[in-house]
Amino acid sequence: MLKARLESDLRDAMKARDELVTSTLRMAIAAVRNAEVAGDAARELSEDEVLSVLTKEAKKRREAATAFADAGREAQAAKERAEEEVLAGYLPKQISDDELTGIVRDALAAAGLSGAASMGPAMKAAQAAVAGRAEGGRVAAIVRAQLTAG
């Protein structure tokens, strides 16, 4: 299980005195635990939900790195990029644009969706088909292109 792997890797990083990996994994585990206790009752997250939390955390790091770089704070930007790299090791490999276009086309055809008015249902179908192997922004751009072209 992914959560157990995170905790095991955290112990290994602490023993190795790897501060970057230790702090990044602590942050990731805290985010997972926060998601577990959010809502009405505490519960164990599924593998996909843990993956979703890690994806969101990686996206936060990427956005923060961009913001720091734009503000001329390159040291903080480098730290954020390094944390994103650590998290990327736990995420599935991102698929290419060509593969993504094919998956989105098939998902839209299977759901019978076309036209810009069906963006919401189309995104839901596409995200389910992609299953975390591509960023939401990339998926949205391809869905939008498919809907306006078709």
Rank of each mutant, 00 (worst) to 15 (best):
A145V: 07
K15C: 08
E80R: 07
S23K: 00
A67F: 01
A71L: 13
A107I: 07
Q94F: 08
A13N: 00
D70S: 11
L10Q: 03
M14G: 05
S96R: 03
A88E: 07
T101E: 14
Q76L: 15
E84N: 04
Y90V: 02
A129L: 09
G115D: 00
A58Q: 02
I142E: 15
R144F: 01
E49D: 09
E47G: 13
V37S: 15
A140N: 11
E83F: 05
V50W: 02
Q94M: 09
L6T: 03
L87M: 00
A109P: 00
K3P: 06
V139A: 14
S8T: 09
Q146P: 01
D106C: 06
S114F: 05
G89S: 07
V32L: 06
A77V: 10
A126K: 07
R138F: 08
R5I: 11
A13V: 02
E19K: 13
A78M: 11
K60M: 05
G132E: 02
V86C: 01
R133A: 07
A128D: 13
A38P: 02
A134K: 05
S52R: 04
Q127E: 15
R105E: 15
S52G: 09
D97S: 12
V104P: 08
E36R: 03
I103R: 10
S23L: 03
L147P: 13
A110M: 11
E57D: 03
M27R: 02
